[in-house]
Amino acid sequence: MSDHHAEGVGAHTASAEYIRIAVVLFALTAMEVLLYEACFGHLKASMPGLSTSLSPWFVQLLLVLSAFKFWLVAMFYMHLKFDLKVLQWLFGFSLVLATIVIMALFTLFTYNRTLWWWGGVPW
């Protein structure tokens, strides 16, 4: 049953690629932590200019970085890129729905405050 699948994955990916992706994932995680340290943490005092220019975009940048990590793991480690399209649709649809629900709930509960994912647009 798994023959055709094993071929599909084996042809496209190799250990070397897994290692490359692992390196990228680590780099991204390091960037996340550095971003936090630069904006609010230990590095803030030593580079105040960078901190003031980055911190308004802190949330957005973090979301982009983690979305990229998410995408890498899903596409390559979970083989979605090489697998059946229907699996991409399945996962993609539920992710979109989950995101919409998170945003909708948060909007409903912070109605008079902000749209948080936009970094605080006054409403």
């Binding site: 995680t29 996340e32 932590v33 971003l35 936090y36 904006c39 609010f40 943490g41 911190s55 802190f58 949330v59 973090l62 979301l63 970085l65 983690s66 990590k69 998410f70 793991v73």
Partner: peptide, 15 residues
Amino acid sequence: WIIIFPVVYLMSLGR
């Protein structure tokens, strides 16, 4: 966890 790490930890700290 890739979502939890920034959303729960970093974003709660960095405000």
